[in-house]
Design a protein around this nucleic acid. Sequence first.
RNA 1: GCCUGGGUAGCUCAGCCGGUAGAGCAGCGCAUUCGUAAUGCGCAGGUCAGGGGUUCGAGUCCCCUCCCAGGCUCCA
Length: 667
Amino acid sequence: MAATVTVRLPDGSAIELAPGATARTLAEAIGPRLAKAAVAATVDGREVDLTSELPDGAEVAILTATSVAGRAVLRHSTAHVLAQAVLRLWPGAHYAIGPVIEDGFYYDFELPDGAHFSDDDLERIGATMREIMAEDQPFERHEHSIDEGLELFADQPFKREIIEAVARGADEVDADAEPTGGEAVVSTYWNSPAFSDLCRGPHVPSTAALGHFTLMRVAGAYWRGDEKRPQLQRIYGTAWESEAALKEHLHRLEEAERRDHRKLGAELDLFSFPDEIGSGLAVFHPRGGTVRRLMEDYSRQRHAESGYEFVYSPHITKSELFATSGHLEWYADSMYPPMELDGGTEYYLKPMNCPFHILVYRSRQRSYRELPQRYFEFGTVYRYEKSGVVHGLTRVRGMTQDDAHIFCTEEQMAGELDSLLTFVLDLLRDFGLNDFYLELSTKPETKSVGSDEEWDVATEALRSVAVARDLELVMDEGGGAFYGPKISVQARDAIGRTWQMSTIQLDFQLPQLFELEYVGSDNARHRPIMIHRALFGSVERFFAILLEHYAGALPTWLSPEQVRVLPVSDDHLAYAASVTASLIGAGLRASTDTADESIKARIRRAKVAKTPYVLVVGDDDVTAGTVGVNRRGSDRPERDVAVDELLREVVADVAAKRVPEIAGTPA
RNA sequence: GCCUGGGUAGCUCAGCCGGUAGAGCAGCGCAUUCGUAAUGCGCAGGUCAGGGGUUCGAGUCCCCUCCCAGGCUCCA
């Protein structure tokens, strides 16, 4: 054996250690602060425990809890303690898997006698976890043969299933085949005589290294995500490297809750979901209707400027149309069941607009001279979403898409895609979104039509316009629609969440199914290419995203009410009315609040409604022709502003589509 | 669709071991006429989601249905 081992550090330097040195020894050799902060290490890129011995010549990095990988170790270890606590409280419980997820972890259990967790249990479990952490139990790694593993977990059916999968060489979430000696082995972590868990690790050295966690909620989840398998009880939690980081995370969650569009929609009187109508079906109130109209009007204007023509199509159709399009074959699960009319003819509510636009195209023979044809429609579609998935305005059963279909020649395709992407990004920026990345979705493994070659051509066309942008491109393998690949524009909002916005889909299939043609300059018939695209996605969903992004404080140009004028007393009513009239005369949305309430109360109401400009007019203003101005986001009112001056300010704000300062914590 | 938890006044929520329903805000009325985030007093408002059952008696216990939330799955 060599007298020393030498390992290389991430900065390229080498360090010499005594034989048998562990990652922990290394951390201590580098410095006491690192030794204290260390939770695990990587050896030649593989994550290992601090107690693992370092081989000579290895590249080693120490993981601390403030790194992404370090937090994952922390969370994974906390998940183990959760399992230990549950087994302590419910002897005989079965434990399944406990992986790390974004910002936290979960663990799935099956409790004896079909018992289930309640919110009170979370507190008890959390308290027990803290006991275990106080007991300073080590995470000791052991390796076992498959047979030993099966023996160890004889009464744990889920663990046995994982081990059996490892034995078959499957890559498992929470247990890993280790290529040691060519024979499959499993590793366990032993915390105490009462608890060990199957896991590939690594873990923190001891339960005492944990502590900044919260158990969040209980949920049901299928074993392996398969609805035919047993439903387990899942506990979600989050864990961080410090109390401050934990608090910050909880604060972010509160911020997201404050921005919940369903809450804002009710508070700001924008829309509602009356039970009488049904799940996932919204009505827009006057204020929400105004916002929606503004969004749609602006979109229409931009589409008209960009060479789109406006078409309209009905909400229902005979089944034949969707049989030809393939929707009945591929999409029937998401469609409302048919209505039988006219002695047996079946009619369907439309889940998509494309077949209708195709019929517009096919209404007469087309020449290459008139391509591209760009048909736009605010098309209202209905999709029978499963009851558990509907969510506010972001996932509904009835929605209006800003849908368009472009029919073009193969030669025109690249240019169309390119200008389309510019159009999309410009439009989204006008609404104040400006942090984007692109996602390219390729052929689905199961549900798809068309040959691999066609898919390759279409996918490549999309890829080339995507990479031409100075934007991040993320692959979404298998995420395309059944008829073609797509690019989607993902936007990050004010608190760092990402939303799928616009989609651009290429389609070589529907033109074939509907036998679309155009006559080329060669006097021969050719097949056009079809591009599907929706920029808002759905108007409802885009509305929801804007509401959350702006926390309800929509830009002035989109605000349902832009200015509210408050007379100090009844003496100023006439003046207030004249100010309001001149604002309305300038094309603004303004009203006078004549309620018999104190000026303070009316200011508060106007502010709570997130009105961009709240004007107060009293004696001084009547004589001087001025107003007092409260701008949204400012707590310092300004006095003696000339009406003309204020009017110019608001008009300029609207014309510039100025983005308000977004209240709240940035991500 | 499945799991868990919910549904009490327009909204947010109290309501014990089963004994006949309560607050704040909003609404309405009266007083108040006010210069920058809630003036005071009063009134009204509920088939306790709907239906069925147990019970002398059900908001409360049981069953079914609908709706909501968080997940699983799916997705714009």
